[in-house]
């Protein structure tokens, strides 16, 4: 018998306490993403590729190809807006492994004024509710750079646990650094929602 939520009421799965998930017009989202990409610190926290710049047009084409080209049952993408001022502050993508019911999540808060204030944590909480309550996921996984402790703490607050690390696989600023792997199981998330001790 699977663990169940003690209290369950249908909620707006796309609205949290600080943020909401949205779909944006590709032109608009591409403009914001191109601007965020000019912030190399953001790029380094979000990605392990070398910082590169792309035109609004290129990013728009990429968004259209990946998110607008028909429904794919394994791929879900959202933009993130702050509730207080409705500003577009970031994005979140989910890859659902259909056979094994595992979700991989990637998130980026591009607006640095919104870093360290709980927006990313709130978006991750929404992502977990959506994954477990709508996609039928049994676990959710993510990867984070060891040099990004702010993100690591946010993921812990949302309920993720450190599961392992790949030692020194990333070279940044002349230093080798680890990749950390985190995950949360459905049962653990249900327990959190029910207020049970872990």
């Amino acid at each position: 018998m699977q663990a169940r939520l003690l209290e369950y009421e249908m909620k707006d799965l796309f609205r949290g306490e600080l943020v909401r998930f949205t779909a944006e017009e590709p032109e608009f989202r591409a403009r914001q993403e191109a601007r965020w990409a000019r912030d190399t610190e953001f790029h380094r926290l979000a990605d392990s590729d070398p910082a590169q710049l792309y035109s609004d047009k290129k990013i728009k084409e990429w968004i259209e190809k990946n998110f607008e080209d028909g429904f794919k049952p394994g791929r879900y993408s959202f933009s993130i807006r702050a509730l207080e001022d409705d500003k577009l502050i970031g994005f979140l993508g989910l890859w659902l492994n259909l056979i094994h019911s595992e979700v991989w999540v990637g998130i980026g808060i591009g607006e640095r004024d919104y870093w360290g204030k709980g927006y990313g944590t709130d978006a991750m909480k929404l992502c977990l509710r959506y994954s477990f309550m709508d996609l039928g996921a049994q676990r959710v996984s993510l990867g984070v750079h060891a040099y990004n402790p702010r993100a690591f703490r946010a993921y812990e607050k949302a309920g993720f646990r450190l599961e392992g690390r790949t030692r020194q696989d990333i070279m940044r600023e002349g230093k080798r650094t680890d990749s950390l792997w985190m995950g949360i199981l459905r049962e653990e998330w249900i327990q959190m929602q029910n207020g049970e001790q872990r």
Partner: peptide, 8 residues
């Protein structure tokens, strides 16, 4: 033919 993935 998989009809629903959430419902499997």
């Amino acid at each position: 033919f998989v009809v629903s993935w959430p419902g499997r």
